[in-house]
Design a protein around this nucleic acid. Sequence first.
RNA 1: GGUACCAUAGCUCAGUAGGUAGAGCAACGGACUGAAAAUCCGUGUGUCCCUGGUUCGAUUCCAGGUGGUACCA
Length: 295
Amino acid sequence: MVLGPTGIGKTSAGIILAKEFNSVIISADSRQIYKEIPVGTAAPTPDQQVLVPHYLIGSHSIHDYYNAFEFEQDALKLSELLFNIHDIIFMVGGSMMYIDAFCNGIDDLPTVDDQVRQGLMEKYKNEGIESIRRQLKQLDPDFYNQVDLKNPKRVIHAVEICIMTGKPYSQLRTNPRKNRPFQIIKIGLDMDRGQLYDRINQRVLAMMDGNLEKEAFGLIEHQKLNALNTVGYKELFEYLNNKISKEKAIELIQRNSRHYAKKQLSWFRRDKEINWFHPSHVKEMIELIKTSHIN
RNA sequence: GGUACCAUAGCUCAGUAGGUAGAGCAACGGACUGAAAAUCCGUGUGUCCCUGGUUCGAUUCCAGGUGGUACCA
């Protein structure tokens, strides 16, 4: 498992490692999985994918419904197949919740019906969060006491699950720690924060020199899709809708990418199983894999 | 060279009728169970340019210095 903040160089480090072990890569990236947005997500290029076979890159459409549970299922199925051929396989990505679902498992909850979600969204818009909170307090007082009541998504989702199952959401949250039939070695990539931010800022400029604007322009009719509520696209849609200048959009993409990197580091920091490396220290990573790998 | 104005947080700037200071942005820290590149919460981080003077006390007043800007030469 190679993880780390956006822009740190997971893709190239992962390719070097996978080549070294003559192996393959399963991506753990909630946005590179969509085939329509390779530029803004800095997905591995066709050239890179020739060097090492990649899975779950561009395998889905922005119109598909996808989530962490489905990722867990897809990635587990793939790994089962691939372990028949390879002794070691690599997972490379930075989507925290996807990685967590793959490593530790995630509760099997029903997919939320579109009508239920739409109905609650309407209620939220018209009556405000307080009304959803009251509903949650009634349906699941336990969860009401532990949830972040200021976070609409959390509150709404809990109510959704209560409605879908007819049971309190808190009863369905078992916080699983599933055992996997394979060993997981976690390699985290990190570097000086200022250098990382420089890399991120420059990568955004490189994307703009590339085809990011064209990519976003081509998707403008789908701008409401969740898959496009993504750094790089939401800002460009603002620009293409004449809400902000192009320069402002670029600044915002850079800033939001930095914020995202910080958030990823904040999440990964509390996982004590992660072995941290500078992205250039590939030899040390190989050494770690060789010494900790149990046949 | 002369005159005027300015110098406070990473940046742009407020302010203190003399009691060591605060906004916006940036930054930093955190939460996280099917939307997660999402969503949400928290935190001022400071030789108030330097050296003297007045004062119980100076970032604030005074003098000189340094740097910047504008105008005049």
